[in-house]
Amino acid sequence: NEEPLPEGWEIRYTREGVRYFVDHNTRTTTFKDPRNGKS
């Protein structure tokens, strides 16, 4: 039961299956979860 991502964020996966987060607001990507700060 995960809380929803902030507005404008999306979860994607690399070809290796590593989860990362896309911030469409700033057009950046990060491996850090914007909901809780954990990677």
Rank of each mutant, 00 (worst) to 15 (best):
E3S: 11
E7Q: 12
R12A: 09
Y20F: 12
T26Q: 05
D33L: 00
G37S: 12
E7M: 11
V22M: 09
E16P: 04
Y20C: 07
T28N: 09
V18A: 08
E7D: 14
Y20G: 01
R35V: 04
R27W: 07
E2N: 10
S39G: 13
P34S: 01
G17H: 07
T29R: 12
K32P: 05
H24I: 09
R27I: 06
F21H: 00
R12N: 06
G37L: 11
E7Y: 09
T30H: 15
N36Q: 12
F31P: 08
V22F: 15
N1V: 13
Y20E: 04
P4H: 08
N25V: 10
G37A: 12
F31G: 08
E2F: 10
R27A: 14
S39I: 13
W9Y: 04
R35C: 03
F31M: 15
D33W: 01
T30Y: 05
N25H: 08
N36C: 15
P4W: 07
K38G: 13
E10Q: 06
Y20L: 06
T30F: 03
H24Y: 08
E2V: 10
E7F: 09
Y20W: 03
P4F: 07
R12D: 04
N1A: 13
W9E: 00
G37M: 10
P6I: 03
K32I: 15
Y13P: 00
N25G: 07
T28W: 04
D23Q: 04
E3R: 11
K38F: 11
E3T: 10
T14F: 02
F31A: 10
T14Y: 02
D33N: 01
G8V: 01
R15Q: 12
F21V: 00
D23I: 01
T26E: 06
K32H: 15
D33T: 00
R27L: 09
P4G: 10
H24D: 05
T28D: 06
R15V: 12
N36M: 12
W9Q: 01
R27Q: 15
G17T: 02
I11V: 09
N36S: 13
E2P: 10
R19M: 13
F21N: 00
P4Y: 07
P34N: 00
D23H: 08
T14N: 08
T30W: 05
V18K: 11
G8F: 05
V22I: 13
R35Q: 03
P34R: 00
Y13A: 04
E16F: 12
P4V: 07
T30R: 05
R12V: 07
R27G: 15
P34D: 01
H24R: 08
R27N: 15
N25F: 07
Y13F: 11
N36Y: 11
G17I: 01
T28C: 15
V22D: 02
V18D: 07
I11D: 03
N36P: 14
R35I: 05
P6H: 03
F31C: 15
H24L: 09
S39N: 12
E16Y: 10
R35T: 06
R27T: 08
G37V: 13
Y13K: 05
I11E: 10
I11M: 14
E7H: 12
R12Y: 07
R35E: 04
Y20T: 02
L5Q: 02
N25W: 07
R27D: 15
N1T: 12
T26V: 02
E3K: 11
G37E: 12
R15I: 11
E2C: 14
T14K: 02
D33A: 00
F21Y: 08
I11T: 07
Y13I: 08
W9P: 00
D23Y: 03
H24C: 08
S39E: 14
E16C: 15
P4R: 08
D33V: 00
N36A: 11
N25C: 09
V18S: 07
T26G: 06
D33P: 04
Y20R: 01
R12F: 09
V18L: 12
V22E: 06
E16W: 12
T26D: 04
R35F: 05
E7I: 09
P34L: 00
P6A: 05
N25A: 08
T30Q: 10
R19K: 11
T29G: 07
H24W: 11
R19F: 05
S39P: 12
T26A: 06
G8H: 06
E3F: 09
G8C: 07
T28K: 11
V22R: 05
H24P: 04
L5P: 15
R35G: 03
V18W: 08
V22N: 02
R12L: 08
T14C: 07
G8A: 03
P6E: 04
W9A: 00
H24F: 09
T29F: 12
R19G: 04
S39C: 15
R15M: 12
T29K: 15
N36T: 15
P6D: 05
F31D: 13
E2M: 10
D23M: 02
R12C: 14
I11P: 03
V18R: 13
E10S: 07
L5K: 02
N25K: 10
R19I: 13
R35A: 03
P4I: 08
N1L: 12
D23G: 01
K32D: 15
T30I: 05
H24S: 08
E2G: 10
R35L: 04
T14H: 02
Y20P: 00
W9G: 00
N36D: 15
F21E: 00
S39R: 11
P34M: 00
T28H: 07
T30L: 03
F21K: 00
N25R: 08
P34K: 01
P34W: 00
W9I: 03
K32Q: 15
L5G: 02
T28L: 08
G8Y: 04
L5M: 11
Y20N: 01
P6G: 05
G37Y: 09
Y13N: 04
E3D: 11
E2Y: 11
L5S: 02
E2A: 10
D33R: 01
T29Y: 15
R35Y: 03
T14E: 02
H24G: 07
T29N: 10
W9T: 01
P4T: 08
T28F: 07
P4M: 09
K38Y: 12
Y13V: 08
R12K: 13
T14W: 02
R12W: 06
V22Y: 15
T26M: 05
N1F: 14
Y13H: 08
R27K: 15
V22L: 10
R19C: 11
T28Q: 09
R35P: 03
V22A: 05
R35W: 05
E2W: 10
I11A: 07
E3C: 15
R27Y: 07
V22W: 11
F31S: 13
N1Q: 14
W9F: 05
V18F: 10
K32S: 11
E16T: 14
G17Q: 05
P4L: 09
T30D: 05
T29E: 15
G37T: 13
E10N: 04
N25I: 11
N36R: 08
E3L: 12
G17K: 06
V22H: 06
D33M: 00
V18Y: 10
D33F: 01
K32A: 11
R15F: 09
T26H: 06
R19A: 09
K38M: 14
R15K: 14
K38H: 14
N1W: 13
E7P: 15
L5I: 05
V18G: 07
R27E: 11
E10F: 06
W9K: 00
G8T: 02
G37K: 12
K32E: 15
T29H: 14
F21D: 00
D23N: 09
F31N: 11
T30A: 05
P6N: 03
E10A: 06
P4D: 10
D33E: 02
R12I: 06
G8P: 02
R15C: 15
G17E: 03
F21W: 07
D33K: 01
Y20S: 02
N36V: 14
P6W: 04
G17P: 00
G37I: 11
S39Y: 12
E2Q: 10
E10M: 05
D23A: 02
T14R: 01
K38V: 14
G17S: 04
F21I: 00
N36H: 11
P6F: 03
V22G: 00
P34F: 01
K38S: 14
L5N: 02
G8E: 03
G8W: 04
N1E: 14
T28R: 09
F31E: 10
Y20H: 03
L5A: 03
